[in-house]
């Protein structure tokens, strides 16, 4: 399974009628089993790109080829749960075919056991994020899309959830796209890191991470981080020269 993306342009018109460019050059292909992390500054157009990839926005230049009948699972930037359905119902509505064993395992891993029958209004943001994660994994997706799943959580919780995501991502062969402006996410989870420019977004660099996810200790992570930062500064310098 392969995802081919070639977005050459995307503009928004604001309320005052001015048009501004949000995306300029995004061209890449991803295979099943790859985890691509898009690392870019806030407001550069990451969520916009994801909406285009999932077919929620057709108003752009270029084309996107998603594999036919690929099942998608998504964790939106906000949890986007149905407030009038319980945690369990929220997951089951997205994944009607899931069996009880799998669901229990998922809830256990994400520490949601005690919250099955709660309504989203009764959950903290961290818990709601986990429900959104559970929902995305419950559909057993072919394409998994995560839009800043760890933003605005405290460090300890973010670290724990990041490990849980790493585990879930490794448990299934799929195309994974994760968007973040946190370098730790990129370093811990990615097979490939795409550095994005500020708005309008274009790909500044496409960096493979060769050490397998489970073998990344503190030393490796520090090394990968340093190399990404180095590449990022080179890319930005290149850009300002050209």
């Amino acid at each position: 399974m392969q995802l081919d993306v070639d977005i050459t342009g995307k503009t928004f018109q604001n309320a005052a009628g001015e048009r501004h460019e949000v995306l300029t050059g995004l061209k890449f292909s991803l295979q099943s089993g790859q985890v691509a992390v898009f690392f870019g500054p806030s407001g550069c157009g990451k969520s916009t790109m994801l909406r285009i990839l999932l077919g929620l926005d057709h108003d752009f230049q270029g084309h996107v080829t998603r594999p036919a009948k690929a099942r998608a699972g998504m964790v939106f930037q906000e949890p986007r749960l149905l407030p009038w359905r319980s945690v369990e119902e929220n997951v089951r509505l997205a994944a009607p075919d899931i069996d009880e064993t799998k669901l229990s395992a998922l809830f256990k891993l994400l520490e949601l056991d005690a919250h099955r029958s709660h309504y989203p209004g009764e959950l903290s943001l961290g818990l709601a994020r986990r429900v959104a994660l559970a929902r995305a994994f419950a559909v057993e997706p072919d394409i998994l899309v995560l839009d800043e799943p760890l933003a605005s959580l405290d460090d300890a919780l973010a670290n724990r959830l990041r490990e849980e995501i790493a585990m879930l991502v490794s448990s299934r062969t799929m195309i994974t796209l994760l968007v973040t402006h946190n370098l730790d996410d990129a370093v811990r989870l990615a097979d490939r890191v795409f550095l994005l420019s500020a708005r309008p977004a274009r790909i500044l660099a496409d960096l493979p991470v060769r050490t397998p996810r489970h073998a990344r200790g503190d030393a490796e992570i520090a090394a990968i981080k340093a190399s990404i930062l180095r590449r990022a500064s080179i890319a930005v310098a290149d850009r300002s020269v050209s």
């Binding site: 929620l56 998608a72 939106f76 986007r80 149905l82 359905r85 119902e89 509505l93 559909v139």
Partner: peptide, 24 residues
């Protein structure tokens, strides 16, 4: 609208979307 998008991404059927997303 954002819940509509959610239903689209998760390929929820029309009836399911109406019953669980729109009607409430």
């Amino acid at each position: 609208r954002s819940l509509d998008e959610m239903a689209t991404v998760f390929a929820m059927s029309r009836w399911r979307t109406f019953r669980h997303v729109i009607l409430p």
